[in-house]
Structure formats: C-alpha cells, structure tokens
C-alpha cells in the first residue's frame, strides 16, 4: 500500500467518524460498555485465580527420611529437582521436636532425650504441580520413608481450581463473544447509514480493499477509543475499590498493582483493535456485493 493511499484511508476514516457523529458516539458508547463488562469479568477471574494460587501456597508436603540417612543434602537436591517443587526446607530431628513442643506448649516432650521424630523436608509447591506424580517420584528416592500431605484439602482445592478455571474461561469467552456480536451489530449500523457511499465507490471502480480499509480503520479507531474509555473507568473504579477495602485486605487479598493494570490494558486494547477491525470487515461484506 502506498503511504499516500494509507493517509487517504486514515483521513477518510477520521472524516467518516466526525461526519457521522451521532452514529460514532452511539457505537463508541456501546463498545465502551461491552469492553467495560469484559474487563470487569477479566478482573473477577484474575482475582479468583489469585485466590486459588494463594490457597495452593498453603499446601505443604512433608517428606520424612529414614533414620539411617546420613546425607540429607543429596536427597534435598533431588527433591528440589522434582517437577512442580517451588521450595525445599530441611527440618532436622531436633527442629522437628522443637516445632512439635512449641505447638503442644510442652517444653520437655522427650524427657529421656530420645527423639523419635524423623528428619524431614517440607516442600512448597508451584501452582501447576501434578501432586500424585510428585508424591510417587519423591517416594521413589532412596532414603525417603514416607510422604505426607493433607489429601482432603488438596482434593478440594483441585476441584475448586478446576471449577474456577472452567467457569472463568467460559465467562470470558461468552462475554468476549457477546462483545464481538455487539460491536459487529453496532458497526453494521454505521455501515448501513453509509451504504450509498459504498455503492458509489464501487460503481466508480474502487476495489473491495479500497472500500474496506477506511471502514476497518474506523472500526479500529472506535475499538481503541472504546477500550481506552473502558480502561479508564475500570482503573479508577478498581483503585477506588482497592482503596476502600484496604483495611480488610488481610482477609480478602484483592489483586492490584502495575502488572494487573498492564495485563488489563493489553487485553482491552487488543480486543478493541481486533474486534473493531473484524467488526467492520464482517459488516462490510454484504454491502460490497455491488
């Protein structure tokens, strides 16, 4: 495409948006609302995901060693190398006894100095750990006597995570689809209002691509503007919410920070750009058959 042609398209797109102000503002409003809703669900899903990640951090696996083990460092290194292991912490016999005594509030639990507790490793896990496999592999390491973890809690957590992931994805997919549908229909209205212009362009010999580009650019500009507005509303609203519940954050750990804002920005602007362009492209198809 020649640069002159591109600037012609851009000029036409901007003129089109300004000339058809009412349609532009209507479309912009609808796209903003659609993307705002999508952004809202995105934040909700991100927070649910964050909650499950926090819960997963609570899962701890204890790997008890056989009393005869003399080289726990080697076993520690092997455990750390297992897939899904985030951190490995060695708990010696004495440390284990001290922790137990502290927990029970009894300072001299083992009176005769005989400490029956085995040395152990506490493993914390990555979120995506495949627990049964990990446990099997840990048990296979020579020197490991037993692997213990809260099986019921993990089972509950796994089910909860699966439900949250499926529901979150379904929610995002449905909202995304609804937003795309709304955008296509809205842009279709703006295209319909200008069907005579399209017909004339075609009759004087414009190629389909030439007719399409200004409209696609208009769609992209509308999509990006809508995304920008939705982002602004969401950002202000969300930081207001975060600020208001600051005090309760220990009980309800809501996600915040530049990383989340960046993700939201990329997702919304990307959707605005893609859906706006695609919306125009699809809407024009029918009118190009002149």
């Amino acid at each position: 495409m020649k640069p002159r042609t591109f600037f012609y398209f851009l000029r036409e797109a901007l003129h089109g948006l300004v000339r058809n102000r009412v349609m532009t503002l209507t479309a912009l409003g609808i796209i903003t609302i659609g993307l705002f809703l999508f952004g809202l669900f995105f934040l909700l899903t991100a927070n649910l995901h964050h909650l499950t990640a926090l819960a997963w951090e609570e899962v701890e696996i204890r790997v008890f060693l056989e009393p005869t083990v003399t080289n726990p460092e080697k076993i520690g290194a092997e455990l750390a190398a297992l897939p899904g292991v985030k951190k490995v912490k060695y708990v010696s016999k004495a440390e284990g006894a001290a922790a137990l005594e502290k927990m029970l509030g009894n300072r001299n639990l083992f009176l005769d100095g005989e400490n029956p507790l085995p040395a152990a490793f506490n493993l914390s896990l990555q979120e995506a750990a495949d627990l049964p496999t990990l446990v099997r592999m840990a048990e296979a390491i020579p020197g490991v006597e037993e692997v213990v973890y809260k099986q019921d809690f993990v089972k509950f957590l796994e089910i909860a995570i699966r439900i949250i992931i499926i529901c979150g994805l379904a929610l995002l997919f449905l909202t995304g689809f609804a937003v795309l549908y709304i955008i296509i229909n809205t842009i279709q209205l703006t295209v319909y209002a200008r069907r005579q212009e399209i017909e004339i362009m075609k009759l004087v010999g414009a190629t389909d691509a030439f007719v399409r580009w200004p409209f696609v650019l208009e769609g992209i500009i509308l999509g990006l503007l809508g995304a920008g507005l939705a982002l602004l509303i969401l950002r202000e609203g969300y930081s207001f919410l975060v600020h208001r519940i600051q005090f309760y954050r220990r009980f309800f750990p809501i996600l915040s920070g530049p990383e989340l804002e960046f993700k939201l920005m990329v997702v919304l602007l990307g959707m605005g750009l893609f859906f706006g362009g695609l919306g125009s492209h699809v809407s024009l198809k029918r009118h190009l058959k002149v």
Binding site: T5, E197, V204, A206, F210, V211
Partner: peptide, 26 residues
Amino acid sequence: VIFQDYKLLPQKTVYENVAFALEVIE
C-alpha cells in the same frame, strides 16, 4: 454512469464528489 437520482455524496462538496472518482482508483 449517470443516474436519475444523481447519487451524489451529500456531505462532500462538488469538487470532492468529482475528485472522489479519481481518488478511489488511486
């Protein structure tokens, strides 16, 4: 082609309506 109902673009000037036919063929 000329039409009974002219088919001019109402928001473009006379000059722009005519130039349009050249612009769309680059």
